[in-house]
Amino acid sequence: MADERLSLPVEDPDRGASGDGPDRGTELARRTELRRQLPGVEPDRRLTDWGRSERVEGVMDRLLFDFFYNYWFRCEVEGIENVPADGGALLVSNHSGALPPDAAMIAKAIKEEHPRPRPLNLTVEHFFKGFPGFSMLVPKIGGVAAHPANVQRLLFDEQQLVLVFPEGRKGTEKLYRNRYKLRRFGRGGFVEAAMRAQVPIVPVCVVGAEEAQPIFAHLGLLQKLTGMIYAPVTPTFPHFGPLGMLGYLPAKFKIRFLEPIPFEEEGMHEDRSLVQTYAHEVRARIQENLLEMVAERESVWFG
């Protein structure tokens, strides 16, 4: 459900009002100075500035995620130590399923398995901000619009974990027969974001989501009528109504966090070819590991 357009044309931030030129040293100094000016934590509030609510998250966790993680998908996690314990990091994952359970399961995996559990920010399409109901719920459980400025603020300024799906909607729309074949990874905007923020990329592979909610076809008319992004035909949707979107088959989930790719050097994002090279590299690593994991899997349902 993420957006691949992570490199939307934000005007060049080098051209600050103070009139300093694109001198790299002052640019980093300026950004570091701005980072110091972040608002302080307000402990008596129940929501963060992004609208995240621990309370709503807890309710969702108890109602849905706990059950799905432990009993329905029986998630198996490898390489959790590759998620850094502090500092910003960009998690990049493959994406599938009509109402994708992968984001929630990755977040839950970090919460359950990591020695230092941290909140994960999920980048979501702008669509959710405009759809009544979703627009209230999505920010409260950690969804942030996939705008490059948002990703930058979370990664660089707030030093948080961000999860992106570079395949975006192309990943969730793909039909069952195309399972585990990665779509195009956008224009490499996610690599640029990580480079600009000087944080590592952690590639993530999820196996099982393709079978949990296979899409057989798309219904153009229903999509137009509801104003949703798409209306897929799944084993439980549309014939069981809107709740059918939550009708997942009990496939066995395996989540593998790959070794982080560091981007500590400054100014790498300005090199387009370097960005593209790394985008291909990340995609290749995920694809390779996915195929390996699928090959090792003896049963879709029992792993």
Binding site: V10, E11, D12, P13, A17, H126, K129, A145, H147, A149
Partner: peptide, 13 residues
């Protein structure tokens, strides 16, 4: 608007 960033900085339109 729907596709706004979470925070507008001064350079943005």
């Amino acid at each position: 608007e729907q596709d706004d960033p979470g925070y507008f900085t001064e350079e943005m339109r």
